[in-house]
């Protein structure tokens, strides 16, 4: 039995002068103005934003910006989103940030928290997700920028 052996041929290097550009010359192509990466990141971080749009029955829609602090949704007036309805638990759910994401978590409420119609215990939120608590609809809106 003969075993044929494949030999990978080494490709001959392309002479520098034949390349479209050489590594030595890239500095000539770059901008003369240096932009520090850290300021780019900070700028994009400022542009990234997440908020909730709260639609309660017979009330004007409400916009709530989300930050690092957790937001409690419930029937007691101290809640970040105050829903004074009998089918809403005193502390019904919370929205909080974890890493780069926002999550909604049900706080063992009596009537449940729903995301896009599904009863959840916890859920990572994505742009345009609809949270439902009782008759209140809460839309999660996210504008994300990344480097």
């Amino acid at each position: 039995m003969t075993i044929s052996k494949t030999v990978r041929k080494k490709s001959s290097p392309v002479p520098v002068k034949d390349r479209a550009y050489s590594l030595d010359s890239t500095s000539k192509l770059s901008s003369t103005m240096q932009i520090p990466l850290v300021s780019v990141v900070e700028d994009l971080d400022e542009k990234s934003s997440s908020h909730l749009e709260v639609f309660q029955p017979n009330r004007q829609p409400q916009k709530i910006e989300l930050g690092r602090k957790e937001l409690i949704i419930g029937r007691v007036s101290e809640c970040g989103i105050y829903l004074p309805y009998s089918n809403v638990s005193r502390q019904h759910a919370r929205v909080f940030g974890k890493g780069e994401e926002f999550l909604v978590e049900d706080l063992d409420s009596t009537n449940g928290t729903f995301v896009n119609g599904v009863k959840i215990s916890r859920c990572i939120l994505r742009n345009n997700d609809q949270i439902r608590i009782g008759e209140t609809r809460i839309q999660f809106v996210q504008r994300k920028f990344r480097v």
């Binding site: 049900d106 599904v118 959840i120």
Partner: peptide
Amino acid sequence: FTQKYAAKKPPMTIFWAREGMTVP
């Protein structure tokens, strides 16, 4: 599909499983 089966009697909840979701 979700709306069609939610309207049936009895209804059935259908969802497309997604990462990061916990259901009780």
